Simulated scan of single mutants.
Amino acid sequence: MARPNLTRPNATRPDAAGPNAAGPNVHRVQPGASVQAAVDAAHPGDVVELAAGNYPGSVTIATDGVTLRGQGNRSVLVPDPADHSACAAAGNGLCVTGVADDRGMPVRPVSGAVVESLAVAGFAKNGIAAAVTDKLTVHQVASHDNGLQGISVEMSTRTVLTENEARDNGQAGIFVANWFDRKGGALETRGTQVAANRLTGNRIGLQLRRVRDLTATGNLASGNCGGIFVVGDDGVPRAGSLSIANNVVRANNRYCEPNPRLDSVQGTGILLTGTEDVVVSENLITDHSGTSPMSGGIVLYPSVVGAPNARAVVTDNILADNLPVDLADLDQRNGSSFMTNSCRTSQPAGHC
């Protein structure tokens, strides 16, 4: 996604008017000032730029084409007990929120928002909570020590998540789904990209749940309970038709207790459960060990409702030092294929 041209910024107060022909308006915010006021004053194409410092309170972006930019890890959104906004009441740090109908179907997505070069830390639920968006970019954001997801993207299309760091969050570092709290068929994400992110110390590094048409490439998942999980069930359309490629998945050996929809997690590199037509290729998966029934390097595992994986393609991966096995097909049916993987052990034998 193209970024706004800032070669000739028009510096303004947070109550400034809309875009200027010479370039986007830049709403500069210092610590102690209201980020939300600046965001509310921004028009499509405007930039809200945070100086270095801590910014207590949650922020909601509901305007198309607004960029929220900080000074990297030096600009931090943190909770404020006095904040009673809807985003804060939900336990989230930064919300990008469109409009859905009563069935959860998008009515008016927020389009073209950009969040980059800042940190979001310490919120009860999600660091970043995006729902019903289109062409959202989250770039070089550090989201850490949040109760649920570091970065959560629900019911959104054409999302770009790149070069973010998500660490020490209670659930997933990055979570992409139809809805967190609803069932239903998988969402066609229309080419969402999850690339070059660093995911450490979470329950799951990257969780893709009930989504389709997505690529996850060049990510590092290390030190989580599980590395990369693609999760579906028997809903139609099925989760899948996506690519997991060129990722480094290493030593995800923390132990996480089971929850109502998933057994305990420990020592799982890449997991497919209840999916179809997923391609897992050219990944490096090493040093996993655990006592979970899903432990192993690459594991195909039936979903919580017993739905098997179908037609997975697992090819050209390098797997080493994963226990109990490098590669496990616990479905053993429905047309999955395993080709030219470099590994020592598989279940059943013969997939290496």
Rank of each mutant, 00 (worst) to 15 (best):
V211A: 01
L271E: 15
A177F: 03
A88H: 02
G150S: 09
V314N: 04
V35A: 11
Q71H: 03
G65Q: 04
N92T: 06
G218Y: 07
R261P: 00
I285P: 00
R28I: 11
P79T: 13
S303N: 08
R203H: 14
R238L: 06
V110P: 01
A328M: 04
G185N: 14
G147F: 05
R108T: 14
S281W: 00
L50I: 05
G235A: 13
R167C: 13
N322S: 12
L136Y: 05
N322Q: 15
V99T: 10
D168H: 13
G53T: 14
D64V: 07
S75V: 11
R69Q: 11
I128V: 14
V35P: 00
S243G: 11
L272M: 08
D321Y: 09
G297A: 10
V76E: 07
Q140D: 12
G53E: 14
A172S: 15
R210A: 15
N317L: 11
V120G: 03
A177R: 07
Q149H: 14
G290Y: 01
L262E: 15
G232Q: 09
V279K: 04
G112V: 12
A16V: 05
N54G: 07
G91I: 07
L330E: 15
V39I: 15
D233K: 00
V35G: 06
D134K: 13
S85A: 08
S143V: 08
I318K: 10
D233E: 11
F175C: 01
I174H: 02
V279E: 09
P308H: 08
G23K: 02
Q36E: 15
H144Y: 09
G290Q: 08
P324I: 09
N259Y: 05
L262R: 13
P109T: 10
L319R: 01
D145S: 14
A100W: 02
I298Q: 05
A310H: 13
K125L: 04
G306N: 14
G72K: 02
R158Q: 15
G226T: 12
T217E: 12
D287R: 05
Q171L: 15
S342D: 14
D83H: 03
L77M: 03
P237E: 09
H43Q: 12
L271T: 06
N253E: 08
I174D: 15
I228K: 01
V153K: 00
R238F: 06
R28V: 14
Q30F: 11
L136V: 11
P9M: 07
A251W: 01
C343A: 06
D287C: 04
T315R: 01
V120D: 08
L327E: 04
P81T: 13
V230M: 05
N197D: 15
A216Y: 03
V48I: 12
L262N: 13
L6G: 09
V279L: 08
N224D: 08
T60N: 05
S75Q: 12
I244L: 15
A62V: 04
S34W: 05
V115F: 02
N253P: 01
T217A: 01
A90K: 04
Q207F: 02
G98K: 00
A113E: 08
S222A: 13
G127L: 05
A88K: 00
R13W: 07
G269Y: 07
H84S: 10
G185L: 03
Q71G: 04
R311G: 05
N224H: 08
A21S: 09
M105C: 05
A16Y: 03
E276V: 12
G91C: 14
T133V: 04
G269P: 03
P4V: 11
